[in-house]
Amino acid sequence: MPSLAYVLRRLAQAVPTVLAIVVLNFLLLQLAPGDAADVLAGEAGSATPEYMAQLRKSFGLDQPMWLQLLLYLKQVVTFDLGFSFRHGMPVSELILSRLGPTLLLMGTVLTLAVFVGVLLGSLAARHLNRWQDNLISTLTVLAYATPVFWAGLMLIVLFSVKLGWFPTSGMQKVAAFHEGFAKVKDIAHHLVLPAVTLTLFYLALYARLMRASVLEQASMDYVVTARAKGLTERQVIRRHVLRNAMLPVVTMAGVQVGAIFGGAVVVETVFAWPGLGLLAYESLFARDLNLLLGIFFVSTCLVVMVNLAVDLCYSMLDPRIELR
């Protein structure tokens, strides 16, 4: 089991990352046309002149750069991400309200992709160069080359427009007001297509990785030892090879969390799934750069947290990790 000290150490390591993101955000603000107040208020001039003046003052735009940065840091640390005039509410509140659907989508995708990927990958490795392997390898090559948004659109054409099995958009049926189990069922029904769309790509990635990893592990000495003990091939794989082979997959899953979030932006846009990704698209469309920066900041924090969780899983799988 990972010790508390380990968890704390990893948390402490995350602090500079989060700070660096804040600085990056600040730099992006500087790069944008107009001054920070223009950006923060949105371009369309929907803010009142009083608010603009107040903004300029609160950001100390007349102050030197480093002081501006410090002020910005202070605001972000207190979770004050500004105000969105498009939505008429504070950015932090807006983001919190959209966090749930994104977490649901990403959690489903990550779990599905890792489990099914590991399953398919080891299946392909066990039946190396036979039809199972060829089929899985061909499908993964295809899925790995498919743009996520296009896969989503094509699934909509097939399963929603032609077959009518799944809804095309949203997270719940409008005006149905389901409660309890019916609500869960309704959300799950809506979740299927977006989750499958995003899973396909990562599933393919993990399946390829798992296949290669199983093949590599199968040539290790400890596998010979296991055979010399009298284990069947199935036991050798299940008891010895699988756990070792999963290590690179888990590492990769950790590295990919950020990428999966990027995919969520596209998928949420395609399926109008009311999460952070869709919010990002909307803010992009409305040129609400401040909201976009807020989403960027929160999503990075999110990735840091998920990374930590993945690392903890890894340290449970691999006892050697405590040495590092």
């Binding site: 950020g258 990428a259 990002a280 960027f296 990735v303």
Partner: peptide, 11 residues
């Protein structure tokens, strides 16, 4: 690598 790179590209 931690940054959601697609979102960063959008930004």
């Amino acid at each position: 690598q931690t940054i959601p790179f697609f979102l960063f590209a959008i930004l």
